[in-house]
Design a binder for these strands. Structure first.
Lengths: 203, 203
DNA sequence: ACATGGAATGACCACCCGGTCAGTTTCTCG
DNA sequence: CGAGAAACTGACCGGGTGGTCATTCCATGT
C-alpha cells in the first residue's frame, strides 16, 4: 500500500520536475540554477534537497520522465501502424514525435540541450536515446524483411532519420506557426520511404 | 604593410584559439574555463585578456574561424561538382564535410555544442549555420530547376539533410574506426538522391 | 488546548570562475 | 649597456551557485 508519505513525496517530486522543465525551457539547461527551479516551483531551495540529492538528479529525473513519455507515445504509434508499409508506419511515428514536441515545447531544451553535461549523465542519456534509435531501426528491419526496402546498414539509416527529425523539430520550435505535425512527417516519410526503397531500375 | 606587432598578435590569437579548441574537445564547451585554455596554451590567464576581450570572444572567434574553414571546403566541393547530377554533387559535399570532421575531431564539440550559450551568440551561430544550410538549399534548387528533383520545400529538405549529416558525424566521432568518409557520404547521397527524385510512377 | 515530530524555510558557507592590475620579465633602440 | 616601453604574469577580487542546517511552521493525536 502507498503511504501518505509516499503520495506527498511523489507529488512534490512531480511539482519540482515540472518547475525544472519550465525553468530550463526559459533559460536553457546550463543557465538554470537551483534557485530558479525553487522560485518556479514556489518552494524554498532547501525543500528541493528534501526530494532530490543534487541539481544533477533533478535534471536526470526530469529528463528521464519526459523521455519515457515520448518513447511511449512513439511505441504506441509504431504499434498502431500494425503491418502498414514502411512509409506509412514511419509517417505515423514521426507525426507522433512532432506532435509530442509541439505539445511539450518546454521539453525540447532538456532533450536536445543535454549534450553539455557531466560524463555519467551523458552515458545514461546515450542509453535512452539508444531506445529511441532502436525503434527506428526496428521499423527499417521490418521493411527490409518484407522486401520493401533495399538492404543497407539499418542503424546508419535510422541515425539519418532521427537526425533529420531532430533538426526539423528544432526548426518547428523556433517557428511562430509551424505547419501541422502531419505535414512535416509526411515530407520526411516520403523522402525516406523513397530513399530507402528497393531499387527498381538503375538510372 | 603588416607590422611586427600585428604578426605577433595574430600568432598569439591563433595559439590561444587552438588551445581553446583542444580544451573544449576534452571538457566540453560549458565546462571549459579560461584557466583551462590558458594552461593548454601555456600562457598566463592575464595574457589571454591582452588578445581577447572576454571568454565569449575567445569562443566566438574560435568557432568562427573553424566554421569559415568548413564552409570554404564545402563550397570548393560544391563548385568542383560543376553540373553533376544532384546525387553526385551531394555526395561530394557530404564527403568533404565528413572528411573535415574526421580531420578536425577537436572541433566538433565547439560546432555542435554551441546550443547552450548566451543569447546574442546563438544568433550569430544561427547566421553562420544559415550559410551552411544555404549551400544545401542551393544544391536542391539546382536539381529542381533541372527537373531531376520533384518540387518540394527546398529549405525543409535541406534541413533534413543537414540534420542527418550532423547525426552521422556525431556517430563517426564516437566510433573507433569510422568507415571512410566517402562511404557514409555515399549512403546519405543515395538515400536523399532517391528520396527527393521526381516520381516516375505511383506505387 | 497542548505536545510532538516531521516538513519547510532561507540565511549562510565554501567553492568556482571570469576578469583585473600591480609587479616582473623581455624587447628595443639610442 | 642602460633605460624606457611593451609584453607577460599570477595573486587577487567580486559575483554567483550548489548545497547545508539551525530555526520555524504546522499537521496530527491526545
Amino acid at each position: 500500500m502507498t503511504t501518505k508519505r509516499q503520495v506527498v513525496e511523489e507529488f512534490r517530486c512531480r511539482a519540482i520536475s515540472d518547475a525544472a522543465m519550465r525553468a530550463v525551457a526559459r533559460k536553457g539547461l546550463a543557465r538554470t540554477t537551483v534557485d530558479d527551479i525553487a522560485r518556479e516551483a514556489g518552494v524554498a531551495k532547501g525543500t528541493i534537497y528534501l526530494y532530490f540529492r543534487s541539481r544533477g538528479e533533478i535534471i536526470e529525473k526530469t529528463i528521464g520522465a519526459a523521455v519515457d513519455g515520448l518513447l511511449e507515445r512513439l511505441r504506441l504509434a509504431a504499434d498502431a501502424a500494425g503491418d502498414e508499409p514502411f512509409g506509412g508506419a514511419l509517417e505515423r511515428v514521426l507525426t507522433a514525435q512532432f506532435a509530442y514536441f509541439d505539445e511539450h515545447r518546454v521539453f525540447f531544451r532538456l532533450y536536445f540541450g543535454s549534450g553539455e553535461y557531466s560524463e555519467d549523465r551523458r552515458l545514461r542519456q546515450t542509453r535512452r536515446s539508444r531506445l529511441h534509435l532502436a525503434l527506428f531501426v526496428e521499423l527499417i528491419r521490418r521493411g527490409c524483411r518484407r522486401g520493401e526496402l533495399r538492404s543497407l546498414d539499418a542503424e546508419r539509416a535510422a541515425v539519418a532519420i532521427t537526425g533529420a527529425a531532430r533538426e526539423v523539430i528544432l526548426r518547428r520550435i523556433h517557428e511562430k506557426e509551424p505547419v501541422p505535425p502531419a505535414a512535416d512527417a509526411r515530407l520526411l516519410a516520403d523522402v525516406f520511404g523513397a530513399g530507402l526503397a528497393r531499387r527498381e531500375k538503375k538510372g
